[in-house]
Structure formats: C-alpha cells, structure tokens
C-alpha cells in the first residue's frame, strides 16, 4: 500500500527524509534506507537541500524504488525552468516514483555555490499546477503527452512563521491547484502547531508534522535564530543543556521527539522525520512515541 492509500485510509503515516550523497557513492544512503525501511512508510528525498550540491533527488528515488521501497521526490523551483521541471517529472514517473513534493527552494546564496543563477521560473503554486497538468496528460503549455503521470502531490507549509496569514493563503492556493498532502517545518511547540492546525484543517488535506531530533542546545539556539518558523521553547533548550554526554543528549533528543509526536498525533495525519544524520535514533523515537510500523 502506498502513501496515497495509507493517507486515504486514515492511517497515521511516517515518512523520513533521505539525502542523496555529495558524490556518486550511493551505498551508505541506501544502507540507511534499508535499515529504516521497516519503520517508515516512505522516504522523502531532498533536492539540493540548503542549495548545497548533491546528487539529484530523482536518482536516489529511483534507486530506492529498485530496493522495493517508496520514495517521495522533492522538487524545488530554484534550479530548473518549466521545461526542465516537467522533463524531470516525466522521467521520475517513468522510473516508478509516484509521490512528489513541490517546494520553492532556498536561495542559492545560502549554499555551497553562492554564485549560481537562481531560476524560479515557476513558483511552488505554479509547479503544483504543472504537476496537475502532467497528471491530466498535458504539459504546462497544453500540449498532449503520450502517457500521463499520476503523481500524488505534496506541498510544504511552515506553521511556525509569523505572521502566519500570508502562508495560510498560499497553502489554500496550493490546495486549489492540486496539493493532496502537506508536510511542515519542524515542530517543537505543539501548542503553536495546534493553533496552526485549527486554521489549516478546514482545507481538508492530510498534514504530516515535521520532526527534527535536537542534537544539542546549541543546535536549538541556532535554529531559533536562523531558520524561519522554527522556535524551540526555552524549557526544551534547557532540557538539552542538562544532558552532559553525547549519549545523554541522544537519549534526551529521543524523549523530546517522542513527546512532541505524542502531543501532535491527535491533530495531524502523520509525521515527517528529518533526522539530519541521527537516522539511527528513528526506531527508538517511534517506539517511545508509541508508533508501531
């Protein structure tokens, strides 16, 4: 059963981020995927996250399909114009990739090729419209295709940003243009998340809450300062501060994630884990959160 069917059936879904390698060595990434496969329903493969060059998302997705697991291909508007985006989408579908997550993309100056020319020929709403067009057997220009796609279309929303209103309007536009599910930026403040859910649930699309394990108090402060929409509450930061050894921090991080998951679970349709190198914690987090695969 795929992500689409699971969400349609009301199953609580777990997806996990997977990053393509910086290079051609795909072994370690696939090893991670194999290890986590029993615990998650789909792997969400990043597209040059933070504008740092890596292997293309669809390539790792195709390898994940070959392994017998389900990927979600992330697609940003940063690096490709409408031709290249549609070409990659057609190719991804042909390679057996059935889920796509449409994003705007970070600005190139945030990454390791700061001089790269930003594209943004389409924005995320228009990208969703393009996917819908391909799903209906036509390209964005209205030309007929030989064989259409049938993508399950995801989009992102950042529930922690202030002010939230413009983002909710955009979320509604994404739904209008064909977004079928949403995943969010990392949630650390369940109460704030619920305020967002109260306004977003009328859109009637499943929402997967983003979860990033904290590695340290420093990481939490860094995210609070530099990442839009992430606000780690002070008491959570203090919790991480009290952990003195790495083992302690990992244990504390698992507890915090599991607690957040338990608190948001009644208000969303799944979670999207972004372990950022701490993939090995995923089984413990899910077990402590009471989520059985």
């Amino acid at each position: 059963m795929g992500l689409r069917e699971r969400l349609a059936n009301g199953e609580f879904v777990v997806t996990c981020e997977a990053a393509p390698p910086k290079g051609t060595e795909v072994g370690p990434a696939l090893e991670e995927v194999r290890k986590l496969a029993p615990y998650v329903h789909a792997f969400n493969v990043t597209d040059l996250q933070s504008s740092v060059l890596r292997m293309s998302s669809w390539a790792l997705c195709a390898l994940i399909v070959r392994e017998g697991f389900e990927p979600v291909v992330q697609l940003t508007c940063r690096d490709r114009n409408r031709l290249a985006l549609q070409a990659d989408l057609l190719g991804a579908w042909a390679l057996g990739i059935e889920n796509v997550l449409a994003l705007t993309g970070d600005y190139p100056t945030l990454g390791d090729h700061p001089g790269a020319r930003p594209v943004f020929d389409l924005d995320s709403v228009q990208l969703i419209a393009a996917i819908q067009a391909l799903n209906s057997g036509r390209d964005l220009a209205g030309n007929e295709l030989t064989g259409s796609t049938g993508f399950f279309v995801g989009a992102v929303v950042n529930p922690g940003v202030e002010p939230l209103a413009p983002h909710l309007l955009k979320m509604r536009l994404k739904v209008n243009m064909g977004a079928q599910f949403f995943q969010t930026q990392a949630v650390y403040d369940p109460e704030r998340f619920m305020v967002f859910i109260a306004q977003a649930e009328t859109l009637g699309r499943p929402i997967l809450a983003g979860i990033i394990p904290l590695k340290s108090a420093r990481m939490a402060r860094f995210m609070n300062e530099h990442i839009a929409g992430i606000s780690v509450p002070q008491e959570v930061i203090r919790e991480m501060e009290r952990a003195k050894t790495k083992e302690d921090r990992r244990k504390r991080s698992v507890e915090i994630c599991a607690r957040i998951i338990r608190e948001v679970k009644p208000y969303c349709q799944g979670i999207h884990l972004m372990p950022m190198g701490w993939e090995d914690l995923v089984p413990d987090i899910l077990e402590l959160a009471g989520i059985t695969p």
Binding site: C77, R78, L103, T104, G105, D106, Y107, P118, F120, D123, S124, V125, Q126, V156, V157, N158, V161, E162, P163, P166, H167, L169, K170, L173, Q185, A228, G229
Partner: peptide, 15 residues
C-alpha cells in the same frame, strides 16, 4: 529575490 507570484516562501519570518 525569487520573484514569486503567489505569496511568501517558507523563509519569510517576522516580515
């Protein structure tokens, strides 16, 4: 900077 046409990206914070 991204020339978006349908509202802010997720990187917009506190205006």
């Amino acid at each position: 900077p991204k020339g978006l046409l349908h509202g802010p990206c997720g990187g917009s914070q506190n205006g």
